[in-house]
């Protein structure tokens, strides 16, 4: 079990605690900047507040800024590339990409079969390939099996299809409980499984990320892909929710 790995590695690397403690203390500081993370352009006195200490970025914000400066000076990073990565995840990449795949799979049996057999190939062909060299596996919900995705060790997630994971996906509580008591966790998300339905939990890794193909809601025959996609929620593709019902199609 991977649980034992967690325990042993955290013991081996307990030297990390020193820097972690520094960062935790820093959390009490408040970020006073506003808007996009283009911190170089911050105007510290724009807030009509004469106490400069309140205008300082928080400790972790200063730490990231310092890292950026050091890495630029060493020629290891390109500031424009950093902005491009942030823009990509703030504007272009999100659950709408996964929702498009799900909707097409609901409407196109061949596409569905291809997605379930070799998602990597399908996703790469559509230009949604991953940047970390990961593999994507699509798991299908059926009346017998409901799939739930977690990353027990950190927060591995199909970024190119769903964007940045929500806070709860990264929380200790979800990561610990999804495997131990999936039905209880699902109930808290408002998903009650039928007696005969098995909850199957998939533990993501750096190499393999999972996407759930939810069951198509009843009464959606004849809807086009765009209307179907509007029913597909982010949580339903993690397995922590169900698609919206037919009457709510856009």
């Amino acid at each position: 079990m991977r649980k034992t790995v967690t325990v042993s590695t955290s013991q081996i690397f307990c030297i990390l605690i020193r820097s972690s403690a520094t960062c935790i203390r820093a959390n009490t500081g408040r970020w006073t900047g506003a808007g996009k993370p283009a911190q170089d352009n911050a105007m510290p006195h724009d807030h009509h507040d004469d106490n400069p200490h309140r205008l300082l970025p928080s400790e972790p914000a200063l730490r990231v800024k310092a890292l950026e400066t050091i890495l630029v000076e060493k020629g290891l990073i390109d500031p424009a590339a950093l902005d491009a990565i942030i823009d990509l995840y703030e504007r272009d990449i999100g659950p709408q990409i996964g929702a498009g795949l799900v909707a097409r799979a609901w409407n196109d049996p061949e596409f569905r079969a291809a997605l379930l057999t070799d998602a990597d190939r399908v996703i790469t062909e559509l230009g949604h390939g991953g940047r970390q060299g990961e593999h994507v596996v699509v798991v299908e919900n059926t009346p017998d099996t409901h799939n739930l995705v977690v990353c027990t060790l950190c927060s591995c997630y199909p970024w190119p299809l769903l964007g940045i994971p929500p806070g709860w996906y990264k929380s200790d509580s979800y990561r610990a409980r999804a495997v131990r008591e999936p039905r209880a966790v699902l109930a808290e998300f408002g998903v009650t499984l039928a007696e005969g339905t098995t909850a199957r939990v998939w533990d993501s890794t750096a190499e393999i990320r999972y996407l759930v193909l939810p069951m198509r809601p009843e009464g959606t025959e004849g809807l086009d892909e765009a209307a179907l996609a509007s029913l597909v929620t982010r949580d339903s593709m993690i397995g922590a929710g169900l698609p919206r019902s037919a009457g709510t199609a856009a």
Binding site: G33, A61, E68, E90, G94, I164, A226, V232
Partner: peptide, 18 residues
């Protein structure tokens, strides 16, 4: 039509670290 991510990063420094 599909929902947009509410706010992928809560703080600018989260986005920068990412």
């Amino acid at each position: 039509t599909a929902p947009r991510p509410e706010q992928p990063f809560e703080q600018p420094w989260h986005a920068a670290a990412f």
